[in-house]
């Protein structure tokens, strides 16, 4: 899966327009990345990548790229 495809998955999850995200963006600056969307992220990572995120890992994410690193 390409970087762009992974970004597109996150954009769909956050209901953002295509191309709205890039890997360097700080998550704190993305208004849509809130407590509810973090639950969606747990589900997406588990279903699509078999990655079981926990709260500490999510709290450690600083940029969009940090999430992408686990989308393998």
């Amino acid at each position: 899966m390409t970087e762009r495809e992974k970004l597109a998955m996150l954009e769909e999850m956050l209901e953002l327009e295509e191309g709205a995200l890039n890997v360097d963006m700080e998550l704190d600056d993305i208004e849509e990345y809130d407590s509810m969307s973090k639950l969606s992220l747990i589900v997406l990572m588990e279903d699509e990548f078999g990655v079981k995120l926990d709260a500490n890992t999510i709290r450690g994410f600083k940029t969009v790229g940090d999430i992408l690193k686990l989308m393998v």
Binding site: S35, M36, K38, L39, I42, D54, A55, I58
Partner: peptide, 8 residues
């Protein structure tokens, strides 16, 4: 409620 922890 810590929503993430409870969800997990």
């Amino acid at each position: 409620m810590n929503g993430m922890n409870v969800f997990v």
